[in-house]
Design a protein around this nucleic acid. Structure first.
Lengths: 153, 153
DNA sequence: TATTTAGCCTATGGATTTAATAGACTATTA
DNA sequence: TAATAGTCTATTAAATCCATAGGCTAAATA
């Protein structure tokens, strides 16, 4: 299960993506709009900034904004920063491999064999989905919803 | 990341699957062979029993054994018992759905749209992989390893 | 029936992580 | 220089994870 931290972070990224090239967005506004505790959000945005996903501007007229186009930011990148590696076990992680403590031979570990496939499947989706993709999907879903509503009326 | 609890449990299941129809296995033996704290393992096996994956026999000659053929026990079943639902967010869980707190409209939530795909991909693998499958894969991997060793010598 | 075996139950504890809040500090802009 | 808004350090409550201890209960065997 994703932590609240990660959910908040993803919500914030989607929010900022929707307002890309509208200048810096205030933490306070973002927090209020998305119902995120402001101080908690501060820490999350800072982490995203320190990892190159976001940029910020201080002082009046300041705020946060995407460091690059929504087309170039993936869910995978963001989730790894906030939640850690995608891999269910460290021994199959591509981005932060570690030997499983007390796991004898890695090549013949049943758990590892299965989790390798799981990691790959997750990575394929999350590293292949950009913020721009998500915005598009949201728009599509909203159109469909409108259709459903009209149909109901 | 999988918790130690889950890893221990999966190890135990694979161990028991390998010895299916060899009668009950002692917790103590299992714990020692697989390097799992005995008391912790007790709790894990009990949970698996209470969820229909294992059966046990008390008294002398007792122990734990699979409740049914390794072909009929999947990783998905076991992981859900020990780790909880596969779904990254409760609102896409098939086995234990719950509305995300403070998530306005479910149909147009960007996070949900992506995580739905992730859940499906994970479930496809984990619900499609039985203990018998894993034993087979382990054997295959061990054969390959032998080949590598001989080649090296 | 008595005894031993081995799983079952309750509870405790430390360590770590998660979620949230408070307050002082610093850079920037007008 | 005064106001703004991000940055940093601490603290805390709650939850979860990992592990251990000790007594209880069911079952097999002598």
């Amino acid at each position: 299960m994703l932590s609240k931290k990660t959910k908040y972070g993803l919500k914030a990224l989607i929010y900022l993506a929707r307002r890309y090239d509208q200048g810096p967005i205030l933490i306070a506004d973002l927090a209020q709009e998305e119902n995120i505790p402001k101080k908690f959000l501060e820490a999350i945005l800072l982490a995203l900034k320190n990892n190159g996903i976001l940029q910020s501007k201080k002082g009046k007229g300041g705020g946060y904004y995407l460091a690059r186009s929504p087309k170039l930011i993936t869910f995978g990148q963001a989730i790894r920063i906030m939640e850690g590696p995608l891999a269910p076990v460290p021994c199959v992680s591509e981005t932060s491999y570690a030997k499983c403590t007390e796991c004898g031979s890695e090549e013949t570990c049943g758990i590892r064999i299965v989790m390798k496939d799981v990691r790959e499947a997750m990575a394929k989706i999350l590293d292949g989905t950009t913020l721009a993709d998500v915005l598009e999907e949201i728009d599509k879903a909203e159109e469909t919803q409108k259709g459903v509503l009209n149909f109901c009326i």
